[in-house]
Design a protein around this nucleic acid. Structure first.
Length: 585
RNA sequence: GCACCCGUAGCUCAGCUGGAUAGAGUGUCGCCCUCCGAAGGCGAAGGUCAUAGGUUCGAAUCCUAUCGGGUGCGCCA
């Protein structure tokens, strides 16, 4: 279905066209001044500027035409030439009924079947998910849900960091430890043990140790680099060891992502394009795009009009190792070959902006991108309340798992305080706490604009009052409770009788516009804002009108229908945010 | 040094391609549960939108400069 504002834009556009002006001036949007009108059109001001005439005179002409349309209950000119518009209640009610019957629930079809590949999460081997993975995971997950809802064929890829120097560092560390000599015996080419010589727990302590050792000791770093090259060249013992790292880490990550409610279509990693790299490099060499520079093989991506020095994309390090720019480039080839996407999004920390700039330029130079637009969806860094990188009280990195546990504990505490959960089973309480805890974390994160640097404040993350995830869940749970008490009742045609219902109806009808805008800007915070306003509008309606005790049967039925519809929209938006609504809480 | 991002209420943040009286939440101070769930609703106070210029009928938004903060700049990811 087309949205209400789009329909009004068509009508107003017609009016501008009839006056010999561009119909683009007819853009109608929700009013900034809800005390004055429901909708506004500022086109007369723009049109007057272009034609150098009086905006008020243009507005008069447009208004005269709009007044003839039965859609509008009010057409007014205000200030220098704003067109203020109200729609009739009958029209709003009719739109509600259309929306209720829409199988797409008002979602725009911006995708029209096109394919999106979205790359997010990006955890690394041997590192537990830390809080800084939170943003990529939940912003990426929200975007994949949104694009899917908007008619895109979405393919999400976790894109593990499983092929770089950190693996060489781990291998070297294990060799020095001497705990698994078989993988380093050059007389052995397999088979190797099925049981992993490491666990997630041991990897997690191994990696920081290896990393610190390499930083402090240059020969050690050299050894790690050689190990990386040998791994990438296919040394059997190293490959076997690497496989164990991946298996062990994946099991841990799967649990963590599952607890967050985040799913991926593909569990690929940097290593997945190993086979594509040699032919890609040969191809780039043959076409003169790759050259040797300072001992490395690079693709020059600088342009004459660059305002800053743009270093080349390094394909092969001096000692022959492959970098993540190399695998990223090869991954574009793979994705275009396998999926022919119209768009590839990379949801990665904005500090990596120049890396993606290099990779995208190289891809375009080489003609690898096919029909795909390549875009880095960056997000702000995560700091503690002091503005410095976030640490726990003990000084270590905060793990995502611990954060989720804290959110759950806080929710359980609240449940106990309210006394509401007294009759629930332990399982149900735990399930509610899980949903509420995760909603708190996700909403607190997503409601910030993604590009702003992020202050990770535990106190804020455990708040349940005000503009929070639990507020939205609470609103939904209250509606569920009303509907449960009302028993089975059929949906009836809508009609509106109060200002609160009118406001609520307008909000419900704006869903499609918000979904389109949030997609366009890749901005989950717009969905958060909308969900909050919707819940607030409902709470006002709820406070102003008693529904179950309404004696007018028709009005009662209409209000129950409205409740059900609001619940549907609220649940939908929360689902886009990756937030579940408990039965009760 | 060069480049990019940011500076909005005590605090944390929204403000879309320039538009009407700059908005939320939180905190502070009031009011509202004998009625559908108060994790709620209503109200008050709180701002020279970093500073100084410029463009425009009109600027938090666009341009310039200054101050303050963050980030990135060849073999980590």
């Amino acid at each position: 279905m087309t949205s209400l504002s789009a329909e009004l834009t068509t009508i107003t556009g017609d009016a501008f066209e009839a006056e010999g002006l561009s119909r683009a001036f007819g853009q109608v949007q929700g009013s900034d001044r809800s005390d004055l009108a429901q909708f506004q059109c500022n086109g007369a001001l723009a049109a007057a500027k272009a034609a150098k005439t009086n905006p008020r005179a243009i507005a008069e002409k447009i208004a005269a035409r709009l007044k003839a349309n039965l859609f509008f209950s009010k057409v007014e000119i205000a200030g220098p030439g704003f067109l203020n518009l109200d729609v009739t209640d009958a029209m709003l009610a009719a739109r509600l009924d259309v929306l209720r019957a829409d199988p797409r629930q008002g979602a725009p079809d911006t995708g029209a079947g096109r394919t999106l590949v979205i790359d997010f999460g990006g955890p690394n081997i041997a590192k537990p998910m830390a809080v800084h993975h939170l943003r990529s995971s939940i912003i990426g997950d929200c975007l994949q849900r949104l694009y899917r809802a908007n008619g895109w064929a979405v393919i999400s890829d976790v894109h593990l960091g499983d092929w770089g120097l950190q693996i060489g560092q781990l291998i070297t560390e294990i060799e020095l430890e001497g705990s698994a000599p078989i993988y380093f015996d050059s007389n052995v080419v397999g088979p190797y043990p099925d049981d992993a010589p490491v666990t997630m727990e041991s990897l997690v302590t191994l990696y920081p140790r290896a990393s610190a050792a390499c930083k402090a000791d240059p020969p050690r770093l050299e050894a790690a680099r050689r190990a990386t090259v040998d791994l990438q060249a296919g040394r059997p013992g190293y490959r076997a060891l690497w496989k164990h790292f991946v298996t062990v880490t994946e099991a841990g990550l799967t649990r963590e992502f599952a607890s967050l409610g985040v799913k991926f279509d593909l569990w690929k990693g940097e290593s997945g394009v190993d086979g594509l790299i040699a032919p890609m490099i040969e191809d780039l060499k043959a076409r003169g795009l790759a050259e040797t520079s300072e001992g490395a093989l690079v693709v020059s991506v600088a342009r004459d009009d660059d305002k800053k020095p743009m270093p080349p994309l390094i394909l092969l390090k001096s000692e022959g190792g492959v970098l993540y720019g190399t695998t990223d480039l090869a991954t574009i080839i793979e994705r275009v070959r396998d999926h022919d996407p119209a768009l590839i999004l990379y949801v990665v920390d904005h500090r990596q902006h120049s890396h993606f700039e290099q990779v995208f330029r190289a891809a375009h130079l080489a003609g690898f991108a096919g029909n795909a637009v390549l875009e880095h969806v960056g997000y702000g860094t995560m700091n503690g309340p002091d503005g410095k990188p976030f640490k726990t009280r003990a000084g270590g990195a905060m793990k995502l798992y611990d954060l989720i546990e804290m959110g759950k504990a806080e929710a359980e505490k609240r449940l106990a305080e309210q006394g509401i959960g007294a009759g629930y089973t332990a399982d149900e309480r735990a399930e509610i706490a899980r949903k509420v805890g995760i909603a708190t974390i996700k909403f607190a994160d997503l409601s910030n604009h993604r590009t702003t640097d992020y202050i990770f404040d535990l106190e804020r993350f455990s708040k349940f009052e005000g503009k929070t995830g639990p507020y939205l869940q609470y609103a939904a749970v209250r509606i569920q409770s009303i509907l449960r008490k009302a028993g089975a009742c059929a949906a009836v045609p809508s009609f509106l009788t109060s200002p609160e219902e009118r406001v609520l109806a307008l909000r419900v009808l704006a869903l499609g516009d918000i979904m389109a805008a949030a997609e366009d800007k890749r901005a989950p915070n717009m969905l958060c804002e909308y969900a909050f306003e919707l819940a607030q509008d409902f709470s006002r309606f709820y406070a102003a009108h008693h529904i179950l005790s309404e004696t007018d049967a028709n009005l009662r039925a209409a209000r129950l229908s409205l409740c059900a519809q609001v619940l549907g929209v609220l649940t939908k938006v929360l689902d886009l945010l990756g937030i579940e609504v408990p039965e009760r809480m």
